[in-house]
Design a protein around this nucleic acid. Structure first.
Length: 257
DNA sequence: TCTCATGTTTAGGT
DNA sequence: GACCTAAACATGAG
C-alpha cells in the first residue's frame, strides 16, 4: 500500500465518491491519537495526498492518515479487525486499518511543501537538485528514501530508479555528476507515474526489473541483495552495470576485532 | 508455521 | 549534541 502512487489511487477512489462539501456524519475507531468528536459534523473541503500521506481537509485542520508498513483501507466494506478509523459520510463509509491517524492544525495547503511531493503537479525538480547538492555525503539509496527530498518515494521506487539510471546505491551524492543527479530526479518522477499506471492495472510486480529480482535483465548476472545505507533497506543492484561514484575514504577507522 | 517486508517514530546507548 | 541501534507498531504473502 504505502508508496506515493498508491496513495494517489486512494485519493482518486475517495474523490470518486463525491463527498467533497459533505459533512462527516459519524466517526469512530480505535485510534487513541484523535478526538473522534472533533470530526463529526465537519465539512470536508478537499481530499488530497502528499507523499505517503492521505489527507482529508477541513477548514482549519487536516486529518492525516499514514499507512506505515501494514496499513490498509476499505471503501464501503469492512474487515473483521477493528478499524483505526471509520468515517461515515452520506451513504458512504471509509475504513482505515493499522495506520497512523493524526489531526494537524491548519489547512493542508499551509502545512505541506507541495513542491516536494513526487506525484504533485507542483513537483519542483530544481528544488530537489538543490537538496541533493546540499547533502554531498549522503548515499544515493538514502536520498531516494528521504521524504524531505522525494516525498512519496519508497523502497520499490528506490530500487527501480537506481537500476533504470544505472547508479550504484552506495554512490555518494557529492561524487555523482550533476547530469546523473538530474537523471535521478527525472526518473523518480517518471517511474512513479509508471508505478501508478501499473498498480492500477494490477501489473506492478510484473514490471519490476530490479526489486526482488535475482538476475540483472541487462547483464544476465546475479543481482546483489544487501541492506544498504543509513536506512539499511533492501537493495537489489547489479555490480556490473550500476556505476559506483565513490571516493577513497581517508582516515577510516579500522576495527581491530 | 515461520519469516519477512512498499515505513516511521521514539527511546536508549555510546 | 551527533550518531547509532533496537523496539514498537501490526498484517499478509510466500
Amino acid at each position: 500500500m504505502p508508496e506515493g502512487p498508491s496513495i494517489v489511487i486512494l485519493k482518486e477512489a475517495v474523490e470518486a465518491l463525491h463527498i467533497k462539501g459533505q459533512n462527516i456524519d459519524y466517526a469512530e475507531g480505535n485510534s487513541n491519537k484523535i478526538d473522534m468528536e472533533r470530526l463529526i459534523d465537519k465539512k470536508i473541503i478537499d481530499i488530497r495526498s502528499w507523499g505517503k500521506h492521505f489527507l482529508i481537509c477541513f477548514e482549519d485542520f487536516t486529518l492525516r492518515i499514514h499507512f506505515m508498513l501494514f496499513g490498509s483501507y476499505l471503501i464501503n466494506e469492512k474487515k473483521k479487525t477493528t478499524p483505526r478509523l471509520t468515517l461515515e459520510i452520506k451513504n458512504h463509509e471509509l475504513n482505515f486499518y493499522a495506520c497512523s491517524v493524526k489531526i494537524l492544525e491548519g489547512p493542508a495547503g499551509k502545512i505541506y511543501d507541495w513542491e516536494t511531493d513526487i506525484m504533485a503537479a507542483q513537483w519542483n525538480p530544481e528544488k530537489a537538485l538543490k537538496k541533493l547538492k546540499a547533502a554531498p555525503k549522503m548515499f544515493a539509496c538514502d536520498a531516494l528514501l528521504d521524504q524531505d527530498i522525494f516525498a512519496g518515494s519508497g523502497n520499490i521506487i528506490k530500487n527501480e530508479v537506481l537500476f533504470r539510471i544505472r547508479l550504484h546505491p552506495l554512490s555518494i551524492l557529492g561524487e555523482i555528476p550533476e547530469a546523473k543527479l538530474k537523471e535521478m530526479i527525472a526518473e523518480t518522477r517518471n517511474y512513479s507515474f509508471d508505478f501508478l499506471e501499473w498498480k492500477k492495472e494490477f501489473t506492478l510486480k510484473k514490471h519490476w526489473l530490479a526489486h526482488t529480482k535475482k538476475i540483472c535483465p541487462r547483464c544476465n548476472i546475479p543481482f546483489a541483495k544487501e541492506y544498504l545505507g543509513k536506512s539499511k533497506r533492501r537493495s537489489y543492484y547489479c555490480t556490473n552495470c550500476q556505476i559506483f561514484y565513490d571516493k577513497p575514504v581517508v582516515g577510516k577507522k579500522v576495527s581491530l576485532l
